[in-house]
């Protein structure tokens, strides 16, 4: 049995290219649409979108609604909502997918209520079971999971970064592009100022190696050593919420439930206890390696390799040893 209607992805572009999370959502949309027999549509609002429409098609969309203009320079729910409602009402989808970031988490509940339905946020999986969409998401700080279905439609889902694998780019795919007028909308909320720092070093979400520090790093000095290790491994630096709250590192690198989600090949947890709220942001890592002076720390239960010891004592010789092995491998 298949449900009618298509799958609509609310996509985002970064620097003129389609965002990684949008690509991941398109793969999920493709899989769901193949079951419903519907179309994968995408809507993209922004300014200077470059060839994002081409990206959307190459990564799985059949029809693109694209609004490119100064009205969409920065995301503002009220400014985007009328256009999104227009697209959703024009071709009522069975499912709407939105990325779970500060934009999606802000937008999705409003859009869902406006459409007379509800939203399952931060989903890690979605599939049709006997014709009904089942969405699975983490709860209890990542310690539990729930599976939800919908009594109302469309099913609106926000999708966690790294929960889906994007399809390979297929430049041979064909799709239809529908331009949208970038109408300026009178909004009640007004953006006065926007401060976005270009994050230094490798981007957390795409890094193959993430070195993350917690309370066990003992202060900002410990983070300098962690940064050295991250640089050596070509990785990105992350942190637990405790370390961010103590201002040992910028809040923007917080990993966990209320921070970023990463899924690297290797996650090095330095002095991190592994509370479920933190694991919610790194549980998708392929291999976790932990250094912690508490042998009963939760983090070891998710780790493939571990050392029970003080980071201050372990890290300098670890950096030395890794440098020697890397140089030996390179030569």
């Amino acid at each position: 049995m298949s449900a009618p209607g298509g799958v609509l992805v609310i996509a985002q572009a970064e620097g003129g290219a389609l965002s990684e999370l949008s690509r991941e959502m398109l793969a999920l949309a493709r899989r769901l649409a193949d079951e419903t027999g519907g179309m994968v549509e995408a809507v993209l609002l922004g300014e200077n979108l470059g060839d994002s429409a081409g990206d959307l098609i190459a990564f799985g969309a059949d029809r693109i609604h694209i609004g490119d203009g100064a009205a969409y320079t920065a995301y503002l729910a009220e400014a985007w909502m009328p256009k999104l409602i227009e697209v959703a009402a024009d071709a009522p989808p069975a499912v709407i997918l939105i990325g779970h970031d500060t934009m999606g988490a802000d937008l999705a509940p409003r859009l869902a209520i406006r459409l007379g339905t509800t939203v399952a946020t931060a989903c890690v999986e979605a599939e049709f079971v006997a014709g009904r969409l089942h969405a699975t998401r983490s709860c209890y700080g990542g310690a539990a999971r729930e599976t939800l279905s919908f009594k109302t439609g469309p099913c609106v889902l926000t999708i966690k970064s790294k929960s889906q694998a994007a399809l390979d780019r297929n430049n041979g795919r064909k799709g239809e592009i529908v331009p949208l007028a970038a109408d300026a909308v009178q909004t009640r909320v007004r953006i006065v100022e926007r401060n976005v720092s270009a994050a230094a070093g490798v981007r957390l979400e795409t890094a193959a190696v993430v070195v993350a520090g917690g309370r066990g790093l003992n202060g900002p000095e410990g983070f300098k050593v962690a940064r050295e290790l991250a640089d050596l491994l070509g990785g990105a630096l992350g942190a637990s919420r405790v370390a961010c709250d103590l201002e040992w590192c910028p809040a923007s690198i917080q990993i966990g439930l209320s921070g970023r989600t990463v899924a690297p090949e290797l996650y090095l947890a330095l002095g991190i206890s592994g509370a479920s709220q933190h694991m919610a942001g790194c549980g998708g890592a392929k291999t976790i390696v932990a250094i912690n002076n508490d042998p009963t720390a939760q983090i070891f239960k998710s780790s493939r390799f571990g050392i029970v010891g003080d980071c201050q004592e372990i890290l300098p010789p670890l950096i030395d040893a890794l440098r020697v092995l890397r140089d030996a491998k390179d030569s």
């Binding site: 920065a74 970031d101 500060t102 934009m103 009640r188 909320v189 007004r190 953006i191 006065v192 100022e193 926007r194 401060n195 976005v196 720092s197 270009a198 994050a199 809040a251 923007s252």
Partner: peptide, 12 residues
């Protein structure tokens, strides 16, 4: 308001 990589100041 907290956004990715920073914050914005908004008024209403």
């Amino acid at each position: 308001r907290v956004i990715e990589n920073g914050h914005e100041i908004v008024e209403v």
